[in-house]
Amino acid sequence: MQKTIETEVAVIGGATAGLAAALTLGRSMRNAIVFDTGSPRNKPAAHAHNLFTRDGTPPAELLRIAREQLVLYPTVQIEQAAITSARAEHGRFTLQADNGHTYHAQRVIIATGVKDELPAIPGVAELWGNKLFHCPYCHGWEVKDLPVALFGNGEMAYEFTRLLYHLNKDLVICTNGPATFTEEQRKSLARRNVTVLEETVEKVEDAPGGILITFSNGTVLHKSAAYIKTNIVYHTELAVQLGCELTEQGGIKVNAQCETSVQGVLAAGDVAGGTPQQVSAAAAGGHLAGAMCNNLLAKEEFEKE
């Protein structure tokens, strides 16, 4: 049976930022609904690292604890549903969900996150988050001083190499085609014995102690792990429907208070442009967005005649 449901705040996204916002809203006695599709960005990762007091905790366990702690706050509920459309109407927001229900909210927090667009190389998706990584702050310690590869090319790969080289001196760059480094960059890499392999990568396979990288010329390379600089796809469809301005990189443009260009709509976590893409940063953004919603609602209520 389809229903129309009223709430003060709709939190779209049930991972770190969304649950942090819900905690702040719950402690402020605000009615909030969190919409969760169960697909956080770090779902493939076995552990979340570089996280204050919780270093090494599995991402799924972090979310389980967060949901468990929300039970204490009766004004917050979690819906296992996706919002399919959103529109602003007379100072409120109407959201349609794939469960068939319609939701009306006074404020909206978008915490829909991002997706890593992986290269179309067989084996990459299967090893992603396990032996193929995107962030040395999240995974670098675990593979420090080991032989690693980097999938990337050009300026992006060169900048990333400068970061990785402090942790891994045995480093190979797999450009998966002709390298686009400048002559100066090539010389810099050569001075540090960083090998550049331009052959096409045919596949990546799991192997004892690491991975096997097979190239089109028959070469097979064994490395302990590899880094991939992925293309980031921001989940901004709902933000665009609501008229929110985006950054040049494609994230939702927000101010220091997590407010978007649309009054009443806030954004937090990875989807907010310019935000460090770390679990702790996402949590901080969620708490701030939740507090800002409460501040705005409290001001409206207090000033109402």
Results as ranks from 00 to 15, higher is better:
residue 237 E to S: 15
residue 292 M to K: 09
residue 65 I to V: 14
residue 16 T to S: 09
residue 29 M to F: 10
residue 183 E to K: 12
residue 33 I to C: 01
residue 235 H to G: 00
residue 89 E to L: 14
residue 87 R to M: 13
residue 205 E to T: 13
residue 155 E to C: 08
residue 195 T to E: 12
residue 186 R to Y: 04
residue 268 A to S: 03
residue 4 T to F: 06
residue 192 R to W: 07
residue 199 E to C: 03
residue 132 L to D: 10
residue 51 L to H: 11
residue 128 W to I: 06
residue 266 L to P: 06
residue 263 Q to N: 09
residue 224 S to K: 15
residue 218 G to E: 11
residue 52 F to G: 05
residue 68 E to H: 12
residue 145 D to M: 08
residue 36 D to C: 07
residue 64 R to G: 02
residue 218 G to Y: 12
residue 70 L to I: 02
residue 195 T to Y: 03
residue 185 Q to R: 11
residue 208 P to C: 07
residue 63 L to Y: 05
residue 143 V to Y: 08
residue 56 G to V: 04
residue 144 K to Q: 14
residue 263 Q to G: 07
residue 93 F to H: 10
residue 11 V to D: 02
residue 55 D to K: 05
residue 34 V to K: 02
residue 31 N to W: 02
residue 238 L to Y: 08
residue 193 N to Y: 05
residue 8 E to R: 01
residue 92 R to C: 01
residue 229 K to T: 13
residue 50 N to M: 01
residue 33 I to V: 15
residue 286 G to R: 00
residue 109 I to R: 01
residue 6 E to P: 00
residue 152 G to K: 11
residue 259 E to Y: 00
residue 305 E to Q: 06
residue 86 A to I: 05
residue 28 S to W: 04
residue 139 H to M: 10
residue 40 P to G: 11
residue 49 H to P: 04
residue 91 G to W: 03
residue 245 E to W: 05
residue 275 T to R: 03
residue 124 V to E: 04
residue 124 V to S: 01
residue 296 L to N: 07
residue 235 H to L: 02
residue 208 P to H: 08
residue 88 A to P: 04
residue 270 D to E: 13
residue 289 A to N: 00
residue 26 G to R: 08
residue 166 H to T: 13
residue 252 I to W: 01
residue 118 L to S: 11
residue 223 K to R: 15
residue 216 S to V: 14
residue 86 A to N: 03
residue 272 A to Y: 03
residue 66 A to P: 07
residue 231 N to A: 14
residue 2 Q to W: 02
residue 187 K to P: 00
residue 249 Q to I: 02
residue 45 A to V: 12
residue 46 A to F: 11
residue 109 I to C: 00
residue 298 A to Q: 10
residue 156 M to V: 14
residue 102 T to C: 11
residue 249 Q to R: 14
residue 131 K to D: 05
residue 95 L to T: 10
residue 111 A to F: 01
residue 267 A to P: 02
residue 29 M to I: 03
residue 11 V to C: 01
residue 163 L to R: 12
residue 158 Y to L: 10
residue 153 N to G: 11
residue 51 L to F: 14
residue 147 P to N: 11
residue 106 Q to V: 02
residue 71 V to E: 14
residue 279 V to W: 13
residue 208 P to S: 12
residue 224 S to I: 00
residue 5 I to C: 08
residue 180 T to V: 11
residue 170 D to I: 02
residue 22 A to W: 03
residue 278 Q to R: 08
residue 267 A to V: 05
residue 194 V to Y: 06
residue 166 H to A: 11
residue 302 F to M: 11
